[in-house]
Design a protein around this nucleic acid. Sequence first.
DNA 1: GATGTCACG
DNA 2: ACGTACGTGACATCC
Length: 884
Amino acid sequence: MAKKLLLIDGNSVAFRAFFALHNQLERFTNADGLHTNAIYGFNTMLDRMIKAVEPTDMLVAFDAGKTTFRTKMFDDYKGGRAKTPGEFSEQMPYIKKLLDAYGIQHYELKDYEADDIIGTLAGQADAAGYTTTVVTGDRDLTQLTTDQTTVAVTVKGVTEVERYTPEHVQEKLGLTPTQIIDMKGLTGDTSDNYPGVTKVGEKTAIKLLKAYGSIEGVYENVDGMKKSKMKEHLIEDHDLATRAKVLATIKRDAPLTVGLADLNYSGPDVDQLTDFYTEMGFQSFLKKLHVATDEPAKPIDYTVLTRDNLTQLDQFKDGKQLDFYLEMPTPNYHTSAFAGFAIGADGQWFISRDVELLLAENVQALLSSQTVKKDVFDMKRTMVGLNRLGIKLGAVDFDLLLVSYLLDTNDNSNDLGSLAEQHDYTELQSDETVYGKGVKRAIPDDDQVFFSHLAHKLAAIAALKPKLLKELTENEMAGLYDDIEKPMATVLAQMEMAGVSVDSGTLKAMGSQFKERLSEIEQTIYQEAGEEFNINSPKQLGHILFEEMKLPVIKKTKTGYSTAVDVLEKLAPQAPIVANILQYRQISKINSTYVEGLLEAIHSSDQKVHTRYLQTLTQTGRLSSVDPNLQNIPVRLEEGRKIRQAFVPSHAGWQIFSSDYSQIELRVLAHITGDHNLQQAFKDGEDIHAATAMRIFNLPSAADVTPNIRRQAKAVNFGIVYGISDYGLSQNIGITRKQAKSFIDAYFREYPGVKTYMENIVKTAREQGYVETIAHRRRYLPDIKAKGFNQRSFAERTAMNTPIQGSAADIIKIAMIKMQDRLKAEGLKATMLLQVHDELIFEAPKEEIPVLEKLVPSVMDSAVKLDVPLKVESHFGDTWYDAK
DNA sequence: GATGTCACG
DNA sequence: ACGTACGTGACATCC
């Protein structure tokens, strides 16, 4: 196995940890009065790094004492430093004790600093082909960076690190890692108290090194430099620079008495660590430790169900409730195999791997019964799964997944075990623990292991039901659950099962056209660039555009030059290659995601795609769609829109019918803010963007609203919904920040109710910790009180946006439930297929189209009663493309 | 697995 | 001065 070495600069990280938690110094003491903040912080860092690196070998290096070869060389090395606080020193022995419990080597060497130990080992590790990570709080160690050695420097506290690779050093400083030593030589180091060349700081040093490569190079050329103060200083301080370089150079050949062979890391000694945490009073680590150490599952009673004992289930016939769980090993329940099931109540659990047993008459009767209530985890998944076996699931009472999502959208997991644990039910292991993860994930062969896991799942559902339903009622969300989300799950299951027919012939034809065009554009681009490269690689593309072709850099990303559309659009006039790249990107996106991706998703059995709507994912209450995502099929640009021609009705003589809410979010805004002017505009049926334009730009008549002015007003309207900032608006429509600010001020002046609402909703969020939608859907916003401006601002914008986006989601969900009822009640063949946030898409026999044209809008616009009217527009045609 | 990019509302 | 629009998912690249 590949060796991965983690080297930690003990003193430096401990010191960082001490100061990161310095303001909490008095909170962090154990029963004996020992300060523990540095130990705690060190442990946190250790856990994170071990998790991130997954090292096979580890060592923590410490400084040995006051004197080192550096102080021998220069008395005042690290002189003038403030005395180490006693509260810090007292913790050092315990950090070493912590390391012992972790089974991690630690080492110090007389006359050498921790850096030198690390430098030496990292060098040996590179030579031996290890991958090495160095953790330190000291930027100087970045000189150790190589292709195999990454240096992670702590920033802000100890848990966040900046990773230096040779590329990152190059990008940040424009230097190679070894040139960092020369830089330190030129600049000196005030914290280590040694001077370099007078008046030479980082900037000057980098410039010199870029020109001459090294300190030696600088001095070889110093005579030829033109006369300047800098030249004088360089000559005058030559000795200082030479000495500083030696001081800054980390030893790669310290006489260590440990070697790579001694560093094997195989995990902590849990007993020893438990004792240590107990001594330190680290409750949270104690808890984590015992969660992390896969405790064996608690024994649980269950009965293996067979053909011979099926009648035992008849005891539940007259029962009021029954727990049921159907295990499918992969996420996509439209295609997953069946691994088994569990059924029962009140601690009587019946388990089997054989889902055929569910087809037995008495079992089917229980599942489809309208009087025997079922408690499950993920009813939609269960319904679709059972449907594949030809079984209906009737009368679901409690869906643990759905309820726990509603209670807190933040901690939603799709794993029953993790979810149960979040609600303090710890007897159920996670699927990852029992089944494994990644390629190793598999249903256990061992019946005992698998069956007890399934039995535990039922036990968890049963145990959590009363508690969670009580919380739901306390939070006024019982109605949301009973009247919206639960029926919604059934409707969604039906839509998913129905699926949408996709004409693969159309897609394939489009695909070959796209491929042809792509290779043409590709050749043009290569010619314009003068070389071949991977256009899909932002890294290579950035190199070509900004280094080879020297185009101006407009925006940078974390890792390099940004090549996003807005950047490329600005560059397009300067070089023809840019327009071609944009074209290439557009087509390649359409082809890979929507032609090839969609073709992959077509079920060969019925030539349809069956998406899965994720009902318990978004923070606002919207749905999301995966596998394939049918909520982002292109529409804005004609090129992509053509993809919709491949979405066709599943029967001859049928058509696609679509209805969408017009401006639903702005209508919701008008409703919940109660703003008179905004409400009036909708009541009068005005063009809302034009109306806003007239108001904020103070235009006398509708004739004065030019398309451009309307576009700007539209952006302001959107901005308001998103929780506006002047900067955001200015970026969006390309105006100055000041102009944007004046637009916003004007908006709030004209719509004062909106202003009051925005102020109040943020205040409410701060006071109660959450915001809610018209259907009482909650979103908790813990960051609303965050110290960081950025975090807090984000939470504030979210507080403004969520009630709007979320209420719109509530409305269309209600409409969908009513719609499905009406289709059935009216005896229509029309089928609801898709939901795209504010629109519903159906397929129907041509004859039913006139019916739908009346029925769908009337159901949608009467779904809820708002203070403003809801408006719905409809379209239809032979394909989704034509329903426009 | 993270990152950048781009498709949608 | 902070550094930004809200909510999603899929793909390709590169480590």
